[in-house]
Design a protein around this nucleic acid. Structure first.
Length: 254
DNA sequence: ATGGCTACGATCCGTAGA
């Protein structure tokens, strides 16, 4: 079984790349973020033709999340229960005995901004939600764009980024609080090469310089972690014409 | 140096991302 997550930065612009990538990579389940389109414009027909059932929660211009699955999806839930939020950042569904939660965590903009305060409130609500979901679903995957680089080795230039949004200590503490629930960062279950990232700035030739951050993650419950055989970041789509600024993260299971 | 790309929805610039 193969799980993946990809912030596509506009599903409309990236649809052809996504369909190509699905055909090449053959994932069983894919979480998508930053759809940037209303539900009425979701390309369900095209994705079903590619062999995937879809659960999605979108909005115009910003945010938007989806789960694609080869197996039927049930128990679809949008948002974090009890956390009122206009921004479409969370969708969950069950496929077989696997519970999947797709998240697009807030960016936070700057540490002294209201958006940063919202980011920390949002992470706190997510943690409480995941605690409940973990108690209900031993086989749980939480995939998405977390907008947090967990450690300095996940940052191309830790000195330059020190204290900035995505790496600040309160954000990293919020990340560790998710791990404290018993979730594992699938990428770190394995020995990995150095300087592996999932996002590169469009500006300043960020990708060519490998000036990136590892902010897209596949978290897995302890039971799922036992069966995880690989976790990698696929840089190939980032090399295409008109790419997303994020690369897909893939996790495989026996 | 606070910029630099990209997407979007509004116009021909502002907001947001990270």
């Amino acid at each position: 079984m193969k799980l993946a997550t990809w912030n596509v930065n506009s599903l409309k612009v990236r649809l052809a790349q996504l369909i190509d990538w699905l055909a090449q990579s053959q994932p069983d389940i894919v979480c998508l973020q930053e759809l940037k389109l209303e539900d009425a414009r979701f390309p369900r027909t095209e994705l079903e033709a590619a062999g995937y059932q879809c659960a999605f929660s979108g909005q115009k211009t910003y945010n938007g999340v989806a789960i694609l699955s080869r197996a039927p999806l049930r128990e679809v839930t949008a948002g974090i229960p009890g956390f009122l939020d206009e921004q479409k950042r969370v969708i969950a569904a069950t496929a077989g005995d696997l519970r999947v939660i797709c998240v697009y965590c807030p960016n936070g903009q700057a540490v002294d901004s209201e958006k940063y305060a919202y980011k920390l409130r949002w992470f706190s609500a997510l943690k409480d939600y995941l605690a409940v979901e973990l108690s209900r679903h031993p086989r749980l995957a939480v995939e998405g764009d977390f907008n947090v680089a967990p450690e300095d080795r996940d940052v191309h230039d830790p000195k330059a980024w020190e204290g900035q949004v995505h790496v600040s200590e309160p954000e990293r503490a919020a990340w560790r609080a998710l791990l404290a629930l018993g979730l594992k960062d699938s990428f770190r279950l394995f020995e990995q090469p150095e300087k592996i990232y999932s996002w590169w700035d469009y500006r300043m030739m960020g990708f060519r310089r490998n000036a990136g951050l590892r902010i897209d993650h596949v978290l897995v419950s302890a039971e799922l972690a036992q069966h995880c055989t690989a976790s990698t970041i696929d840089k190939a789509p980032r090399k295409l014409e008109r790419p997303s600024d994020h690369a897909p993260v893939v996790a495989e299971f026996s």
